[in-house]
């Protein structure tokens, strides 16, 4: 009953496949915004940062391919976000203190914050991937019971299945989710 058809975005990046602007934007905008918040950018600056980072990757094209020669994608992405955020901060008239990428990464627990955000990003991508790997009704039972925390009996009634089947769905999805997490963590 495998539904695995779509490659994960991280697999595509790893294998140098073409990534569309829309796919990248949908997946990475929240991560860039969270990082921008850590770096102290205002709402307007955050929006600017998302656009600039997108432009850095796509260079006016609708697609881009990641060159693995640039190292780990997560490090490359962090470096681009940091560098562009520094540029934005330097535009503020009253900024007198010099900033560089290294200071940025080490200061105020920013490195740990980035690691946490990256892990959160991977979990979100893993959940997206899960949707493509299991039957829709199995995913729905998992989502309602394990993610939205509805009562098992309510989910069973709603989906017209037994309580035991709700737990079967939950455990099947969890097993699959752990595999996906292991896979995306390896390929980041």
């Amino acid at each position: 009953m495998a539904f695995t058809t779509r490659k994960s975005l991280l697999s595509k990046i790893k294998q140098g496949d073409e990534i569309s602007w829309e796919e990248f934007y949908a997946s990475y905008r929240p991560l860039i915004l969270l990082r921008a918040g850590d770096l102290g950018l205002t709402q307007t600056e955050k929006d600017d940062l998302v656009q600039i980072v997108m432009s850095e990757f796509f260079k006016g094209s609708r697609d881009f391919q990641y060159d693995r020669g640039k190292g780990r994608f997560r490090d490359y992405l962090k470096s681009i976000i940091n560098n562009q955020a520094i540029s934005i901060l330097r535009k503020r008239k009253n900024l007198e203190v010099g900033l560089d990428d290294r200071e940025f990464s080490l200061a105020n627990g920013l490195e740990q914050a980035w690691n946490d955000e990256w892990q959160g990003h991977l979990l979100n991508m893993a959940m997206d991937e899960l949707k493509n790997c299991v039957e829709p009704v199995t995913y729905q039972a998992f989502d309602l019971y394990a993610i939205q925390r509805r009562k098992s009996i309510e989910v069973a009634d709603f989906l017209d299945m037994s309580v035991n089947s709700v737990y079967v769905a939950k455990n099947r999805c969890l097993e699959q989710l752990k595999k996906i997490i292991a896979d995306v963590s390896e390929s980041d």
């Binding site: 905008r29 929240p30 915004l33 969270l34 955050k46 959160g120 990003h121 979990l123 979100n124 959940m127």
Partner: peptide, 19 residues
């Protein structure tokens, strides 16, 4: 514990995506 972490991540990223 894993599910709790997943729920928190989803909520955090969902909030960010709604900005």
């Amino acid at each position: 514990i894993l599910l709790e972490t997943v729920r928190k991540s989803i909520a955090r990223f969902h909030a960010a995506s709604k900005e």
